[in-house]
């Protein structure tokens, strides 16, 4: 896939090469942005068009302009549940709390079971069984046992996050290179140091990879929790829009959730770049010319 950068016998000067490289990279970036806009225009345009001329019923499927109008009303005036920022904040709070609780539990229990063979053998069957249940239904249970306040949503989000992080932490601990463990022990590390200085840093790439997926799951947990009963939040907003047969409202709520997920993704990526600075940069990011 690497094309020779210049004809043999006629090598380009190094400065030219790097200028070429930078230009190629910029051109590629522009192309990508352009294509992305094109995809959005095509999808939204055909959606708008087909609903306007009546091939698709906008009562059931909404309409991009209607969704934009709905969002505008929510932002400038207010939603059926109060100011929009408050709904976003409530859902964000539930999501972040659930994410943190689930991640901490997942890492702690994952490392514990990864380090202890007996515990792992005893509990593995129960964890597999629990993982096989569609866990969102636990949201219903939490709504009964924890009530309709924030706790039931946090619990639903946390339980979804827990399993993903747990399995990654467990696997990460198991995959630590034996050489590194031997080296640390020879250098004088006790069990505690071994865990904090070798096992956890080594498992961190696995754990962080799971955080990308699990924030999305935390959001699902919070919204499902709200659907099972709530007074505020984006999930509740979607629920009330659905009750009023307001398809545009449902889509507008989805758009809000997507924006929240993208924001969180950016934060997690920044965190990842900080925490695993020691990893060589990915090879694929190099632009070929």
């Amino acid at each position: 896939m690497t094309a020779p950068s210049s004809a043999p016998g006629n090598p380009a000067p190094i400065t030219d090469l790097s200028a070429l490289r930078i230009r190629a990279r910029r051109r590629r970036q522009l192309n990508i942005y352009g294509l992305r806009v094109l995809v959005a225009v095509l999808v939204l345009g055909s959606w708008e068009l087909t609903t306007r001329i009546g091939i698709v019923d906008q009562f059931f499927f909404g309409q991009p302009s209607g969704i934009a109008r709905q969002l505008w009303i929510w932002i400038t005036e207010e939603t059926a549940l109060g100011p929009l920022w408050q709904q976003v904040l409530v859902t964000m709070e539930e999501t972040v709390l659930g994410f943190i609780v689930g991640t901490v539990l997942g890492v702690v229990i994952g490392v514990l079971l990864g380090r202890n063979r007996l515990l792992a053998d005893v509990f593995s069957i129960y964890i597999k069984a629990a993982n096989a249940i569609p866990r969102v239904v636990l949201g219903a249970l939490f709504a009964i046992s924890l009530g309709l306040d924030i706790r039931s949503k946090v619990a639903t989000a946390a339980i979804l996050v827990f399993f993903v992080v747990f399995f990654n932490a467990f696997q990460g601990v198991r995959e630590v290179e034996r050489n590194l463990i031997a080296n640390a022990r020879i250098l004088g590390a006790d069990d505690r140091r071994l865990t904090t200085e070798v096992i956890i840093p080594s498992a961190l790439s696995w754990i962080i990879a799971s955080l990308h997926i699990s924030f999305g799951l935390a959001l699902v947990g919070a919204v499902v929790g709200e659907l099972f009963g709530a007074t505020q939040g984006v999930g509740e907003l979607i629920y009330s829009a659905e009750h009023n047969f307001n398809a545009n409202g449902v889509f507008a709520g989805m758009l809000l959730l997507a924006a929240m997920a993208l924001l969180a993704e950016a934060i997690i990526t920044a965190l990842e770049n900080r925490l695993v600075r020691w990893r060589p940069p990915a090879v694929g990011s190099e632009v070929q010319i």
């Binding site: 050489n179 031997a182 080296n183 250098l187 004088g188 590390a189 070798v198 961190l204």
Partner: peptide
């Protein structure tokens, strides 16, 4: 005892300084 392994056994997540400082810290 000191042990130099055949394959790389320095800690990839530590800088050179912290790799060498590991022993005394332990």
């Amino acid at each position: 005892i000191g042990y130099v392994f055949q394959t790389d056994a320095v800690f990839p997540w530590k800088t050179v300084l912290d790799n060498v400082a590991a022993g005394p810290r332990y």
